[in-house]
């Protein structure tokens, strides 16, 4: 029997009828066509499916959708300001911090969660924050650089 899920995604409230076994990533990709969030391992092991739930980064493949009832979800589609990219998106572009791009939405979401909590992280803290996000293409150097550069830029802008 289907259940009703009430959830706010990227600022828009939704009411969706789903089977209880549906995971959050399935709601995003299959019900709402928000395919920016990538599903790879579907088992909590790669974090390509990272999204924010009430500001905290989680693996959307490993969250039962009904558990986010009443909560706010932010996906990669929700972080840009209209046509203006989020500073992390811009920094990933400038640093060439991707190749195939499959890990990128998850990396950026994990990076955003870190900077929201800790605006001035050390390199080690950046590495720990994305430790669960696997990239099979670029290695991690440019990704870490992009996140650190964003932190620096945001700090300067705040001054």
């Amino acid at each position: 029997m289907k259940k009703i899920l009430n959830v706010t995604i990227n600022g828009t409230p939704y009411e969706i009828a789903i089977k209880p076994k549906t995971t959050l990533v399935e709601v995003l990709r299959n019900e709402l066509n928000l395919t920016g969030t990538k599903r790879s391992c579907n088992a909590g092991g790669c974090s390509s499916c990272s999204v924010l739930v009430d500001g905290k980064v989680v693996n959307s493949c490993s969250v039962l959708a009904l558990q986010v009832d009443g909560k706010e979800v932010t996906t990669i589609e929700g972080i840009a300001d209209g046509a203006k990219l989020h500073p992390l998106q811009q920094a990933f572009l400038e640093h060439g911090a991707y190749q195939c791009g499959y890990c990128t939405p998850g990396m950026i979401i994990a990076g955003k969660a870190l900077l929201d909590e800790n605006p001035n992280p050390t390199k080690q803290e950046v590495k720990e924050a994305i430790a669960g996000n696997l990239c099979r293409c670029t290695g991690y150097v440019r990704i870490v650089d992009a996140i650190l550069a964003t932190a620096k830029k945001l700090q300067e802008e705040a001054k």
Partner: peptide, 12 residues
Amino acid sequence: ERHLATVQIRNW
């Protein structure tokens, strides 16, 4: 806890 699984798993 700081080194249990990943941030994503620890959050949920």
